[in-house]
Each structure stands twice: as structure tokens, then as C-alpha cells.
Design a protein around this nucleic acid. Sequence first.
DNA 1: CGAAACCCGATTATTTTTATCGGGATTTTG
DNA 2: CAAAATCCCGATAAAAATAATCGGGTTTCG
Lengths: 140, 140
Amino acid sequence: MKLSTRGQYALHAMIFLAKHRQDGPQPLRTIAEDGLPEQYLEQLLGTLRRSGLVSTVRGAAGGYSLCGDPSEITVGRILEATEGPVSLADCAVDAGVCGKGSDCQTRRTWRYLTESINAILEGVTLSDILENKPYQIKGA
Amino acid sequence: MKLSTRGQYALHAMIFLAKHRQDGPQPLRTIAEDGLPEQYLEQLLGTLRRSGLVSTVRGAAGGYSLCGDPSEITVGRILEATEGPVSLADCAVDAGVCGKGSDCQTRRTWRYLTESINAILEGVTLSDILENKPYQIKGA
DNA sequence: CGAAACCCGATTATTTTTATCGGGATTTTG
DNA sequence: CAAAATCCCGATAAAAATAATCGGGTTTCG
């Protein structure tokens, strides 16, 4: 149960963009400077753009910028864009896939777990990360 | 971000074993009866055994049984056994992998998210599932 | 115009997941 | 004891997902 590099790269890029918000559009080259594979990151940024998380300016002096304020962009949205929706079992998103009909005893649990995890991921924004916000783990 | 079939099969098997707790060891054949690939499930049950979650009896009339009470076996432990520890970035488990040293600004966040998710997964036991326990999502 | 940059579909390489195979070991039962 | 039931296990194969690369196209600035 770990994040693929897709998600890690995307988060990296988004944090980078949040940090350089004031500096105008950031070219791919610059974003990838910490050693990320440039062309692969380009794909991911394309996905992020199509999800409305970043905007782009083409041509010389162009690059990528955050769409909106870092305080409104959550880790959950970034991961959802790049890794697809969180789900613990198919039936958590799409009822009835398992063929057991609606009396699948465990569906409630998967749904609960999925929603809880989503709530946590939606609870952290880019500015929380930049500002080193103190966290508190919710008791189970 | 979805669970692989490994995790799903393992959970399925564990729930099955919890349901048939009173009926003695359950043979692989029976556990896989809902259409899971038998030999693949066998591998997974091996993993679960090595993790101390199930015990086995060999020979005729043998099979698999839960190790311990369903109320003490959490979804988190089952997933950890089959899918490895939850981690959002390598540095959440093993500091310093990213090469940024200890001042990696984002590590705190990954750690928080990882621990929160773990807390949720540890908060649900097999008996919660069987008994249809009511859940309440923690506000973010 | 030419350089800087994004855009994008296609392809390839690598890794992980999902199985399957074939035989071995253990235990009950007749 | 022999046969049947069952777990055990390393190896291999097939399929899918991930990660990365390629090659060319388009836009924009100076």
C-alpha cells in the first residue's frame, strides 16, 4: 500500500509550484531540476492541467502555475488526479461489482474506510505543508 | 490508489474464517469457493500464516483457522501482511531516502498522513465487520 | 525568424501483480 | 499400511500497470 512515483512526482511538482507562486510560470526544466525524469513529469503535468490543478503558458518564458490558492488545493485532489480515486474494493465506488447484490455485508466497512481515508487526504492543503502546520492524529 | 486483489482476497479469506470460527479448520477449497483462484489464494494464506494471522492443520480434515479472536484482528494488520506497510513516500518509513537530509519540509506531512491512515485501518476489526458495527467518519 | 517552451500520441522498458505448475510433506481414515 | 485429503513451497509464466523515452508538432516571445 504505497504511493507510486506518479503521485510522489505530482506532489513534488505541486509543492514546488506553490513555493514559487510569485515568480511567474515555472518551466518544466526548472520543476524537474531535483532529478525527476523530465519527460515523464511532463506527462503528469499534462494530467494535472486537464484536472484543472495547474495552468500553463506556452512559448518562451512560459511554464506551469498553480490554478488557485495553495490553501485550497488538497493532497487528496492531487492524488485523485494522478492515481485515480481511493478505493479499497471495487464495490466501494461502484455497488454490485462483486455480484453479491446489495446485501454484501462488508461493503459498509469498505465504504467507511474509503471515506475516512479520503477525509484525511482532503484535510491537508499545499499551504499546510509550506507553513509547517502542526498536525494532530485523530484517535481511532 | 486502490487495493490490489491480493488485499481483497486476503480480507475475503479472513472474513470467511471469522464467520466459520466454530466449524473447525477450513480447507482452501472451501475458502476459495466464491470464485477466487485457488492456488493464488494458497500463496496468500501462506503469507498470512507467516504473519501469524492464521494457523493451519495439515492432512485430511485439515485447513486454515484464525489465530486469535476476530475482535483482535484488524483490517490494518491484514493489509500490512499482504500489501506491505502503508506509506505515502519512502521517507515516511525510512528517513533520508530522498537525499534531502532531515530538513525535508514535507516529511512531517507524509508521516502524519501515513499514521492517520494506519490509525483508521487499525480501528476496524473482523468482528466489527461481522457484527455490522455502526461507523462514524471523523471530521477532517 | 529562431529559440524557448508546452503539447501529444506512440512506443519501449521495467516492475509488479496475478496467477499456474509440479511436486513434496503431513495427517486422517479405512 | 495404503489411499485420500490437505497444506507447503519454490519456480515459472502470463498479464497488467508503471515508468520512461521518442519524435515531432504548436505556440509565443524577442
